[in-house]
Write a protein that binds this DNA or RNA. Structure first.
Lengths: 222, 222, 222, 222
DNA sequence: CATGAATGAGTGTTCATTCAT
DNA sequence: GATGAATGAACACTCATTCAT
């Protein structure tokens, strides 16, 4: 180290920032390519080229290709979780919070359809530890929705459904826009897709006495 | 050779049978390995070993690895379609036919969980023609369900839902048992999973005046 | 053997004839393909297909691919030798016999240009014995020419040239039509090529006192 | 690194030099093996072993086996052209320049007999573009000879022969030392081969009035 | 920190050859 | 004689990974 004029901790912080930037740069490049072509069809050289760096550099920031793949998926899921949390905001009504969370999931996935498929496609080639980390992350991402459903049940607004089953149903529905985009893409607008599924899901669980209160969410099923 | 008087077409049939048997043998081996490890992680040598034949032989029956992969997926989907059709039987009531078809899908997928994931994971690496063939097949497989929903709407038994959206919702739900088995597997029995989702789906669309007739399908949501 | 009514030796002769026919059939097919694509690019399967038989059958008539290749080259060279001998006829004048032999070589090679290149291209992949056999054959094929030159020298019609050098010069010239066809093919008609080279060669060696006698062969160099 | 002040272009030049050295190293190894065994009988692994590097490295410098083969042939022909040009020197007399060029060709080919055969044997397996490049190169290589013959005709020193036919005759004669070395090698010394053919060729075309001037080139045919 | 040349194990694929029928 | 299914060694080529600079 030639320059000793910088305080160690400041240097570390600066380095940490630079390190974080590099990681993000590499993750973005890798995510773009892997989402488009599938991780096995993306060479480390291609990632390096996309990021505008040399191959060797990737190994300073990631342990290897598998590690990079896992980091990519984690970063994708984390960004999903963040966007969903933001989408819900501070809606106090549990039922409307369910609808908001569902819409949030749907929008995020519609925005990053290819990225959303990554986890489905590639988790098989992750090691058990990586797979477990992913599951934890996904459960966390689902948490806002699970909490909203629990609240709605506790508040007597909806029937006493099996909470995880119902919540994951909504999650899978959001995912299905990506998974079956070849089917839905040409048959229904995304906004209608979200509205229809919101109506279907709520129609299934709303107590008769609360249906009127959410008529706007039930649409034609009101 | 039992007899030299055998008619040529019988001989051809015998050869055809042998050829068909080999194909099936190879497809089975490939399906097992690819379902377990993912096609990119399965070498042709591994498939040959699993099938107990030499590598070269695979190329007599399939054009290459991609062709083999596609044949595996097609054969899986075809067997799914056949089993679903059989599961429905000749139920005359459209609503009960929906329930039967859904249960059929769920059971098939529960039986062959790993195989069901193949199409999701690997279709990215198929050529456009292959992908298109797969989509056609999946649409065909969904047909019984779509028809049942259409009949139920026409008969005025359920509300006027968007048929493909509702039908694919059920399909995705069936698939979700495989896609999220790490989650559901330890939290709910498959039979309960099917019953809960049947109840949820029907509860969402049954007209108030017909709910009583299908109370057995609605379970706790009746 | 069902039919025992045929005398053994007649049967053998018939069999020999059939065997010969098969060999020729296979050689023709192999020669066509190997001349066009080069022996390494021709599979045994391709030869079998071209000949309309099964792969296995080739191994009843030839020891393997190398043996087949050698047989092909030998058969080509033999047919060349036969055609050259025929072309010379019974010309009594040694000088005109040189010209006739040279023209014969040239014509044969022009007729079967691709076949003529086989020996040049493929002899490297023959075993020493095969290579030696080929050399013997080529020397035999050159014999009429060597004899004619020797006679012309002995008769005092041409200068005392180094016979093999001069004869092989003519042979190589004939071959050069095939070897450099990409060059000559678009620049000179084959008849002119032959005439020009006949004139050049004879002009080099004819004694002054005999030039007039062969003015027709010397053309513009007369 | 002698100095860190080295200008960028110097660094680039150093790298270019290293790259060039590697290419040459690989070309030399490939040329040696392919000339000896024929390109189809030389595996990339064998080339790598011969060059003392790993297989993968070859693909950094050449596009593949075909590209390597073509590069080998091109490099051989280029070195031939260079040596021939050098051999001719600045001989002013057109006839003597013909003799010098011919001798140059002969010597180069005698020196690198095996390499000279490469183009003949392997050009069939080149793609059309590669073949075309080779033809261009060969025409360039022949240029000094063609020019010399043209000059000799224009100067009235030799008869009005068909220039390309006569020039290529000489070229083919030079090549024939390599093509038919199994024949000539044991029958005539290379120096005599060159002298005899020089005499033959000039004897064919020299005008009577100039023969005396070149008696030294005509040898026994004077 | 950053580069990219170098490695070598591993891949999909071909094909000469054999042999049961 | 004739077939063609089956073999398995060999090939060209790729790419994750390392390390000298």
């Amino acid at each position: 180290m030639r320059s000793t004029a910088v305080a160690p901790d400041a240097a570390e912080a600066a380095q940490g920032a630079r390190t974080g930037a590099r990681r993000r740069q590499l993750l973005t490049a890798a995510a773009r390519l892997m989402a488009e072509h599938g991780s096995p069809n993306v060479s480390m050289q291609a990632v390096a080229d996309e990021a505008g760096v040399s191959v060797g550099l990737i190994y300073r920031y990631f342990g290897g290709k598998q590690d990079l793949l896992q980091a990519v998926i984690v970063s994708v899921l984390e960004s999903f979780a963040a966007r969903v949390t933001e989408a819900i905001g501070d809606e106090p009504d549990p039922v409307r919070r369910i609808a908001a969370a569902f819409a949030g999931y749907c929008d995020v996935i519609a925005d990053e359809r290819e990225a959303a498929l990554l986890a489905y496609r590639e988790s098989k080639s992750l090691d058990p530890a990586g797979r477990h980390a992913l599951m934890e992350l996904e459960i966390q991402t689902a948490q806002p929705l699970v909490a909203a459903v629990t609240d709605a049940v506790d508040a007597g607004l909806i029937r006493a459904v099996n909470v995880p089953v119902f919540a994951y149903q909504l999650l899978m529905t959001a995912h299905s826009w990506a998974l079956k985009h070849w089917y839905f893409g040409t048959r229904i607008a995304h906004a209608d897709f979200v509205a229809d599924h919101t109506a279907l899901a709520l129609s299934a669980v709303l107590r008769p006495e609360t249906r009127d209160r959410y008529a706007d969410l039930l649409g034609s099923l009101a």
